[in-house]
């Protein structure tokens, strides 16, 4: 019996996982979502720079692509909503080539929702190769790194970007990162050298890796995974896909924990049974 449970067809486990994600979407229940201090810091910083007379400028580096869209897009939309609500200007760019259309679409959608004008309130500069090289380059010579935006407009003539010469002219830099060519490279090749306010928005997989940067102050805020995005949505009081996703997320985790504990119980029972058999 125990052996049978051990060798259960993996497709049965797959079915449980699938249902644990689907069913909570159909049955609604409320969950308490409270922002942790790392998410709150990002929120507070945007609030702070919105107080500036000029409105403040954020650089959002979309360092991810479709593979992690479900995790990072809700956070990107929530942060853009917050910035546009507070009249903070946003410059977008990408270090991952496969995310260009996605990043552009997100920025266009959010700008449309808040009636923001391209070139004045926001700009999307697109992708350049090199990751670390690009980060170092734009930190010293912003116009040289991105001569034009994705529309082919010269950035030294775009109202929003014409006065930005170096990274120091930007109030807040954040990388929405899914791995290599993201948060870590920003810190290594740019932030540690130019010491500006930097935040990370990352996939849950990589979130534990960035805690040393938080404690050292190289990164002062972190929005990690879909849970982080849900916390940000709670802070701006704009429920979206992340808050909705917390029900299936919670149930799927419970199902997985059940599987792990059940697997271990089976293991120990089986071990005891084997030992008894050996003694006999």
């Amino acid at each position: 019996m125990i052996q049978k449970l051990f060798n259960i067809d993996r497709r049965i486990i797959f079915a449980f996982i699938f249902l644990s994600v689907l069913l909570p979407f159909l049955v609604k229940f409320d969950l308490p979502i409270e922002a942790d201090k790392n998410v709150r810091t990002v929120y507070n910083k945007i609030e702070e720079i919105s107080q500036k007379a000029s409105g403040g400028i954020i650089l959002m580096s979309f360092d991810y692509d479709n593979s992690t869209k479900a995790e990072l897009e809700p956070a990107a939309r929530a942060i853009l909503s917050h910035a546009f609500m507070k009249n903070v200007k946003v410059i977008g760019m990408s270090n991952w080539p496969n995310g260009v259309t996605m990043a552009k679409t997100i920025m266009e959608d959010m700008a449309k929702e808040y009636g923001k004008q391209n070139g004045v309130d926001w700009a999307y500069l697109g992708y350049k190769s090199g990751a670390g090289l690009l980060m170092l380059n734009l930190s010293m010579d912003f116009h040289g790194a991105f001569p034009t935006d994705t529309r082919g407009e010269k950035i030294d003539q775009i109202p929003l970007t014409k006065n930005i010469r170096t990274i120091k002219d930007i109030d807040y830099v954040m990388s929405l990162s899914a791995g290599s060519g993201g948060i870590e490279e920003w810190i290594i090749y740019s932030q540690s050298k130019y010491n500006y306010a930097f935040a990370g928005v990352c996939t849950a997989v990589s979130a534990p890796d960035y805690f040393p940067f938080l404690q050292s102050g190289q990164m002062h805020g972190l929005v990690g995974g879909l849970a982080g995005a849900a916390q940000y949505e709670t802070l701006i009081n704009k429920p979206g896909t992340a808050i909705d996703g917390m029900r299936p997320q919670s149930v799927a985790h419970l199902v997985l924990i059940f599987f792990i504990i059940f697997g271990n119980i089976c293991y120990f029972v089986n071990k005891k049974f084997d030992m008894k058999k050996e003694r006999a």
């Binding site: 797959f14 699938f18 799927a252 599987f259």
Partner: peptide
């Protein structure tokens, strides 16, 4: 691309159980 990566959710569950 999204689907290819989400398939891992199933495999991580199966691997964790076994």
């Amino acid at each position: 691309q999204e689907t290819m990566f989400s398939i891992l959710a199933f495999f991580i569950a199966s691997a964790a159980y076994r």
